[in-house]
């Protein structure tokens, strides 16, 4: 099976300072796999994600390397074509669910809007699809949620809605940038269950985190990033059982939750 997404020698630097943030990262992910990216704050994890989703302002950053999705380089694609891919085949779950929704429009309207950008459906049909998707993710009162404003819902609910929203157009790959960091432990567990379901349904996941516990539960492969460089990569067993690099060992030792792989 070919690589679904392949990052080749990706480098990002601030144009004004010319200081590199990400220095030649390469990794790849196959369909249905879960890749974990771990590293401390400021190591360039989020920048990598944003570069993959073409969210970086080209005037502020110089980006070199390739982001190959289905044998096409996203970085060389015109914006319009990338916009068509975003949401439909490539989706992303953001770090802070509380700020990731437009505060003045209802959840339902936002789901309907997302659907109608990519699909020719009527507003009513889109609303039904949205409510159905929310039910699938465990909202018994999906219609009430659809008619709520973001500030009326909790962070955990919003994060689940964001997951539903990212799944709604059945993408092939979802990037979760610290999707559990802003949530309490209990809600984290619920979100992780949702990720497991995604994994089982064959969606490839890129999970960015600084929490080994999350990776232990989900990831197939792990790459460890430090100061914008990949210091170690391997399967989740290799990384957890016999870390080679001193930084990986340090990170592992700093983690309270160690080696707790629940689903093998």
């Amino acid at each position: 099976m070919d690589n679904l997404l392949e990052i080749q020698n990706l480098s990002i630097s601030l144009r004004q300072k010319n200081s590199p943030i990400v220095k030649g990262i390469s990794f790849s992910i196959r369909g249905g796999q879960v890749l974990g990216i771990i590293g401390e704050s400021g190591s360039g994890k989020s920048m990598t994600c944003r570069a993959i989703m073409s969210l970086l302002d080209m005037r502020r950053f110089t980006i070199s390397g390739k982001v190959i999705f289905h044998e096409k380089n996203l970085l060389a694609m015109p914006d319009k074509d990338v916009q068509k891919l975003l949401g439909t085949r490539l989706a992303m779950i953001m770090q802070n669910p509380m700020t990731a929704f437009d505060p003045i429009s209802k959840i339902g309207a936002q789901i309907v809007e997302t659907l109608r950008i990519h699909k020719r459906v009527s507003k009513r049909d889109a609303f039904e699809i949205g409510a159905h998707e929310l039910m699938k993710i465990g909202f018994a009162d999906a219609y009430r949620v659809m008619n709520s404003y973001p500030h009326e819902l909790s962070g955990g609910m919003l994060q689940r809605i964001m997951i539903a929203l990212s799944m709604i157009l059945s993408p092939e790959i979802i990037i979760a940038d610290e999707a559990t960091t802003a949530l309490d432990v209990h809600t984290q567990a619920i979100i992780l269950d949702e990720f497991l379901k995604m994994r089982n349904s064959g969606i490839a996941l890129v999970i960015v985190t600084h929490n080994f516990g999350v990776l232990a539960k989900l990831a197939d492969n792990v790459i460890v990033i430090k100061d914008g460089e990949v210091v170690e990569e391997g399967t989740v067993y290799q990384i957890f059982d016999s870390p080679q690099h001193s930084y990986t060992k340090e990170l592992l030792n700093a983690t309270v939750l160690r080696r707790e792989r629940i689903h093998a």
Partner: peptide
């Protein structure tokens, strides 16, 4: 620079949609 604007870029909104439906109403 608020998150929800980035989020609407992620789901594939174009500039006009983001400006007219999200930023200006807010």
């Amino acid at each position: 620079n608020k998150d929800y604007v980035v989020a609407s870029e992620i789901v594939g909104c174009n500039s006009a949609q983001i400006l007219l439906r999200h930023i200006l109403p807010n």
